[in-house]
Structure formats: structure tokens, C-alpha cells
């Protein structure tokens, strides 16, 4: 594979052909915020937080799915991008019922962490306050749709790491939701293997271990990367 040289935030870097902008940025200690990206599964470019400016292109490109090319000049943290990222988070907080104070993932939530890292001190848009259910029919796990941001990480790990295909997205637009099998109570799902990968993957408190109380739910996302590395690269140690 040929090496490519490019510029990220004014710094010249080089990387292997085929790498994504996000990979190269992170390898070079340039932090780009992400929510739907998850190491170990393919990217969907849905959360739009990792959008970057590429010189010569009028369109913003998602760092997670954009491959590097020779001579690329990338800005990852302009005023404009920061503004858009903050707005994106505001829209997410307003969309469903994210009540950090009583959330199982308070203190371990990627949405919460991103919000304060990007300087979000309040949401200017009217909260929608939709009515969503909490599914606690499963023996081990629970799903609180109020806290779901539809990143589809759970869907992707269920299909592509576990291979069970239990989870999917149903409906569309603002009423899109994560389902198990035929939109059954999770506890009735015949395909769920109870592997818990979806819970590990969830960035917020939407998927949780039953019995976890406010602030107790920590997701173990590194485990997923470990499984993928072990399976695909025969690599068990870092």
C-alpha cells in the first residue's frame, strides 16, 4: 500500500492509502468528536459530528467514511464546525428525554461528555418531550428509548459481530426506533443470544444492565474491539 501525505489542521502527516480521515486524525492525536462511530464495526456517517472541512470542496465530509487522498488539506475544528457540532448536540438533547441526573450512565455517557467538551451549557431549542417506553422485559438488560440517539451501534454489533440480527431500526424520521425481532418485548425475542454486545456498544444509558442504578452503568466498548481483533486479526493482546 502506498503512503499518502496530507495536512490536518495545518500539520503535515502521512498515512497508508485506504485509511479514513478519522483514523489518521486520531493516530496523530487530533481529536474529532464522534457518536455513531464504533471501533470494530463499519461506519454509517449518520451522526454528522465528525464532519470536517476539506480544502477545495464546498461540502463538509464525514471523517469516519472519507478516505484520505494525496495532498488533502483538512480542517477539523473551525468555528463553523464547532457551531454545527454544538447545534447537532442541542438537537439530540431536545429530541428525546435525556435526564442526566437520573440516568444510569450519568458520568459514563458519550453524549454527556461530548456536550460539556463542546461547551454546551444549555439547549436553546424547545424540548420535544416525546413519549417513549422503557423495555425491561429481558432477563438481564433493559432498553430506555428516551435515551436513545439512534446511532445504530447496537444494530451493527448485533448483526456484524454477534451475527444474530436481533436488533434493527423500525419506522422512520423522528419516530424511528430500535426494535428486537418483530418489535416484540426484548424478553420475548427468540434470536437474542444474551451476549450483551449491544449494551457494551451503547454510547448513552439507552441500553443498560438491569439493576444498575443512576451513574452505575459503564459500557465496555473496548471488549468489542478486542473481539473483532481476536477474530479477524488473530490478535489477543494489544
Amino acid at each position: 500500500m502506498a503512503a499518502k501525505t496530507l495536512i490536518i489542521d495545518g500539520k503535515a502527516v502521512s498515512a497508508e492509502e485506504g485509511a479514513t480521515v478519522l483514523q489518521v486524525a486520531r493516530d496523530n492525536n487530533v481529536a474529532i468528536p464522534t457518536l455513531c462511530h464504533l471501533e470494530g464495526v463499519y461506519d454509517v456517517g449518520a451522526c454528522r459530528l465528525c464532519l470536517v472541512e476539506v480544502a477545495g470542496s464546498t461540502k463538509l465530509q464525514p471523517a469516519c467514511t472519507t478516505k484520505i487522498s494525496e495532498g488533502m488539506n483538512i480542517q477539523t475544528n473551525s468555528d463553523r464546525l464547532r457551531k454545527y457540532r454544538r447545534l447537532t448536540l442541542e438537537l439530540l438533547f431536545a429530541e428525546r428525554n435525556h435526564v442526566c441526573a437520573v440516568c444510569v450512565s450519568n458520568g459514563h455517557c458519550e453524549l454527556q461528555t461530548l456536550a460539556y467538551s463542546l461547551g454546551l451549557d444549555h439547549v436553546r431549542y424547545d424540548y420535544v418531550f416525546p413519549k417513549w417506553k422503557v423495555d425491561v422485559t429481558h432477563r438481564l438488560f433493559g432498553m430506555d428509548h428516551n435515551r436513545c440517539i439512534l446511532c445504530t451501534r447496537c444494530v451493527r454489533v448485533c448483526w456484524h459481530i454477534e451475527g444474530a440480527g436481533t436488533k434493527n431500526v423500525a419506522g422512520r424520521g423522528a419516530t424511528a426506533r430500535i426494535i428486537s425481532d418483530l418489535d416484540q418485548p426484548w424478553g420475548d425475542s427468540e434470536s437474542c443470544t444474551e451476549c450483551g454486545k449491544c449494551v457494551m456498544a451503547c454510547p448513552t444509558g439507552a441500553l443498560f444492565h438491569k439493576g444498575a442504578t443512576a451513574g452505575e452503568m459503564e459500557h465496555d466498548r473496548d471488549k468489542l474491539e478486542f473481539i473483532v481483533n481476536a477474530r479477524e486479526k488473530q490478535q489477543w493482546l494489544p
Binding site: 454509517v44 456517517g45 449518520a46 451522526c47 454528522r48 447537532t88 438537537l91 439530540l92 431536545a94 429530541e95 431549542y125 424547545d126 420535544v128 440517539i149 439512534l150 431500526v169 419506522g171 422512520r172 424520521g173 423522528a174 419516530t175 424511528a176
Partner: peptide, 21 residues
């Protein structure tokens, strides 16, 4: 647009809903 948004990306899913509101 709000009703036809597929719901995949946040700006379209939640942004059109806020704009409509």
C-alpha cells in the same frame, strides 16, 4: 420533509422537526 426524513442522520431527523415546530 420532516415526515419523509428517513431518520438516519441527526440534522435531517431532528433539524426538520425543530424547523417545523
Amino acid at each position: 420533509c420532516m415526515e419523509e426524513s428517513c431518520g438516519k442522520c441527526i440534522p435531517c431527523r431532528a433539524g426538520t422537526a425543530q424547523m417545523f415546530h
